[in-house]
């Protein structure tokens, strides 16, 4: 039985179908990467899962419960935003402590302190807890936002292209570090990216999103080696793969290929 079950999910804006009849089954503890070109509806999908947007039709089941109609605060889901979305008037410490203060109203201050420091040290931002977001570098902001989404150990963590707004060096470091950190929490991760390298490096499975639905859902290796369509194949690889028209014939036990009059 899968943990997160997306069943015929659809969402459109006016006449624009962003997501149409999308299906997926995601296992508990899985690192599930949603990969697709920009404008393919990745962020909309995350917003449906988090409850920021409501689906037009279809079902989202979590642990066998339909959560379609639940408000964001009622779902056991956290999210790290592409633009970090830190609270500018609170210090990094309070930013990270926010989920703890909301969900466990009676959590004693020393327990909050302990948890915030634990996650901050894990993400190496222990030294910036007393600073406001505007005093942090982009890398630190991004770690703070990650810490906030992980501190309360939610069942599902949604990461909306978290490495997009950080510089190349940090992105490279985080690509190695992130899976390790997330493994410690044993949480289900849905990770959105439009960088195929990131998708290949991080995902247990990759779902390729375009035309409003998942066209391939498979392990990185399988997708890379056996893409289901030319569109998927083109999305992986830099520079993109070459393609050309050819005629393939089987003759005398050999495979013959005709390309623009050339015979192989």
């Amino acid at each position: 039985m899968s943990y997160l079950d997306l069943d015929n999910l659809s969402k459109s804006f006016k006449d624009d179908k962003i997501i149409s009849n999308l299906n997926a089954k995601i296992e508990k503890g899985e690192f599930f990467v949603v990969f697709g070109p920009s404008g393919s509806g990745k962020t909309v999908l995350l917003r449906l899962l988090s409850g920021i947007m409501m689906a037009d039709s279809g079902e989202i089941k979590m642990d066998n419960q339909i959560i379609n109609e639940l408000h964001p605060e009622e779902r056991d889901v956290s999210m790290a935003f592409q633009n970090f979305a830190l609270y500018p008037h609170m210090k990094a410490y309070e930013n990270i402590a926010s989920p703890l203060r909301a969900k466990n109203k009676n959590m004693p201050e020393n327990e909050i302190h302990e948890k915030v420091n634990e996650i901050a040290n894990l993400l190496k931002i222990g030294h910036v807890l007393n600073q406001f977001p505007k005093e942090l570098s982009n890398g630190q902001k991004q770690r703070t936002s990650l810490a906030r989404s992980l501190v309360d150990k939610p069942s599902v963590v949604l990461l909306d292209d978290p490495l997009r707004n950080v510089d190349a060096k940090i992105r490279f470091e985080m690509r190695l570090e992130l899976p390790k950190v997330l493994k410690e929490f044993n949480t289900t991760v849905i990770y959105i990216t439009q960088d195929f390298r990131e998708a290949m490096a991080l995902g247990d499975r990759i779902a390729v999103l375009y035309d409003g639905k998942f066209n391939d859902i498979d392990s990185p290796k399988n997708i890379y080696q056996n893409p289901s369509s030319l569109t998927t194949a083109k999305l992986f690889g830099d520079p993109t793969i070459n393609n050309f028209d050819a005629t393939i014939k089987k003759q005398n036990g050999f495979v013959e290929v005709d390309v623009n009059g050339e015979h192989f």
Partner: peptide, 24 residues
């Protein structure tokens, strides 16, 4: 997104209005 983030933390709509929108 800042308000959504606060609600995803587990706060109600009114709390996000009172603690995020108004101070900002």
């Amino acid at each position: 997104d800042i308000e959504y983030a606060y609600r995803l933390d587990g706060h109600s709509w009114f709390q996000s209005f009172w603690k995020i929108s108004i101070p900002l």
